[in-house]
């Protein structure tokens, strides 16, 4: 009070720029910390899961037998044998899924980008692809069961598993193709048209090859995802402890089914087989992810 009356240098109004108040500073710091913590919260389970798998699954996988033998004729407590049958099944089922899903998915992608463009059917298709993306894997399994096994009368087989994985894989291929076709420069199409090349040949010879590496990458990533799907395999597949080379007929194991089968085995061997299969699955998925990255690095579309 007294200083205010004597201080003649005091400006009539407060300064235009004021420092950030303590409360705002604290709020800002708290928010920054929380946001960074949220990221850590996501990293913890990832590391924890991978560590658990590595810790418990490494030892069984290191046996040479693991990669070359099946569990044929072994009793639940025999800590020998391997996952050869399941690895074979996983790879073959994934490959047949890829063989079936890629043509369909790529054609739908071509339709949406090159032909459909703005038509009502294209809009409905896009919506349906979104819905297909969200279809739970168990429902895909039930659908294949209802159609393939119940109505058409085929038996449970590795191929039936592939069919249900197909439903999960197709939307992935469509999305990837769509995205990749959209970033193919229009100049390429125009140059091709200008030379008198028909539209379909332009797509087949110019557009698709340009987008190919991206599509392959997407397919690899998609395969890595569907390989670990267990729910459809439980419904339309059946576990077999021995190797079955024929994907179309008879029970065929895959890694998730092996895990599921051995999960119920209380012996040490069961524990080792379950976590060993988990480790193998993670390794195969990592391999596919790695391949996908390499392919996309090697041959990205140059903009």
């Amino acid at each position: 009070m007294t200083t205010a009356t004597t201080d003649l240098h005091r400006p009539a109004t407060g300064p235009a720029f004021q420092g950030v108040g303590l409360g705002r500073k604290v709020k800002n710091a708290v928010a920054t910390t929380l946001v960074a913590l949220a990221f850590l919260v996501a990293v913890v389970p990832l590391v924890w899961v991978l560590w658990s798998v590595l810790e418990k699954g490494l030892q069984p996988v290191l046996h040479a037998d693991w990669w070359t033998h099946s569990l044929y004729g072994l009793r639940p407590y025999d800590d020998r044998g391997g996952a050869y049958h399941a690895i074979y099944g996983t790879v073959v089922q994934a490959l047949s899924t890829a063989v079936l899903s890629v043509p369909v998915g790529v054609m739908v992608g071509v339709y949406l980008v090159e032909y459909g463009a703005g038509t009502r059917l294209a809009r409905v298709t896009t919506f349906m692809v979104d819905i297909l993306t969200g279809v739970p894997s168990i429902v895909a399994g039930l659908f294949v069961y209802a159609l393939w096994i119940s109505i058409l009368g085929f038996g449970r087989s590795g191929f039936a598993v592939s069919l249900s994985l197909l439903l999960l894989m197709i939307p992935v291929v469509i999305r990837t193709t769509e995205e990749m076709l959209r970033i193919v420069p229009n100049e390429l199409r125009e140059a091709s048209y200008a030379l008198g090349v028909p539209k379909w040949k332009t797509i087949v010879k110019i557009v698709l090859p340009t987008a190919m590496s991206g599509i392959v990458t997407g397919v690899m990533l998609g395969l890595a995802r569907v390989m670990g799907e267990t729910a459809p395999a439980l419904i339309v597949g059946a576990y077999a402890s021995s190797i079955n080379l024929n994907v179309f007929d008879g029970n065929q194991a895959n890694l998730p089914l092996l895990m599921n089968d051995q999960f119920a085995n209380p012996e040490t061997a069961g524990f080792n087989r379950t976590w060993g299969a988990a480790m193998t699955l993670v390794l195969i998925i990592m391999l596919f992810n790695l391949l996908a990255t390499v392919i996309s690095r090697l041959s990205a579309i140059k903009k």
């Binding site: 339709y111 459909g116 059917l121 298709t125 692809v129 819905i131 209802a146 159609l147 439903l167 197709i170």
Partner: peptide
């Protein structure tokens, strides 16, 4: 291409239909 697009629509309808059946 158009057939493939239509196939997806039919597929979703088929899932609902066959499950219902």
């Amino acid at each position: 291409a158009v057939g493939a697009g239509a196939f997806i629509v039919v597929l979703i309808a088929a899932i609902g239909l066959f499950l219902l059946l």
